[in-house]
Amino acid sequence: MKKAEHLELYRQMVVIRRLEESAAHLYQEGKIGGFLHLYIGQEAVSTGLISMRQPQDRVITAYRDHGVAINCGISANAVMAELLGKETGTSKGRGGSMHMADTEKNFWGGHAIVGAHLPIAAGLALGDQYEENDAVTICMFGDGATNIGFFHEALNLSAVWDLPVLWVCENNQYGMGTEIKRASAVEEMRQKAEGYGMPNLRTEGGMDIMQVREAAGDAIEHIRSGKGPFFLEIVTYRFVGHSMGDPERYREKEEVTKWREDDPIGIYNKYLVDEKVAKAADLDKVEAEAEAEVEAAVKFAEESPEPALDTLFDHVYVEEN
């Protein structure tokens, strides 16, 4: 991979981090409503994963989706404006934090009912199989989603029909505030793929973008070669609460502190310097640019217009057939 590509991925990770830190402030100021689920700590997962896709490959995820939106090429402006509910947001202020989407960027959302987007992912892949498109659907979800019926029906369908889907379980070890061993009958989520005869892999390297890229690349290659679906479990950790206002009574501070030592941005920074891909000064520059990009995005979002009231009924139905 060339230096420029590395710096672009590094930029994405820093933009996600800064954007979410700003979002947290804006939430506390009451400018962002509803729920806000931050991706802080997990940035290497979606950045690494999505960096391995071809343009025709589709991405669909759950509600912790700001980072995924950035990785799919949605601008910080459009993400921030969506968070503020503005007409210039990526979903025109109709979806908010949990429903970022841009079908032109092959990003099929941001879904807020745990597991409910998995059957839809199977459908995206079914459509591609039906049309004989050379596309892979990358479907991301958390460990909690593996306990709900959607997951099992979708995995079974994908296996029965050899659908081109990459099932990616981002195992951040808690479904909201419930740790895995209290919720799942098996310790490793990939074991559930075994029940559907599906090839699978678990990587503990979810804080390291290079390990994520390697695992994702192999998995996507497997699917694109026509071998059917693949299940990839990526162990990661969220440094912040499930959503804003989470009292985090379910885990020890020491545990969080320990995981924070493995900050995915720090790990990538060290890798790039150690491997002499980039100099510290290059990375400082990227960080400064990312910070400026996010500041500009906040300004853009704050200054953007609210959706006009006469558009209240827009987008419910396609009017023309």
Binding site: G89, T90, S91, K92, G93, R94, G95, H99, A101, D102, T103, E104, W108, G109, G110, D314, H315, V316, Y317, V318
Partner: peptide, 8 residues
């Protein structure tokens, strides 16, 4: 469709 601002 609504949730994605008319994009789907």
């Amino acid at each position: 469709r609504f949730m994605f601002g008319g994009k789907a």
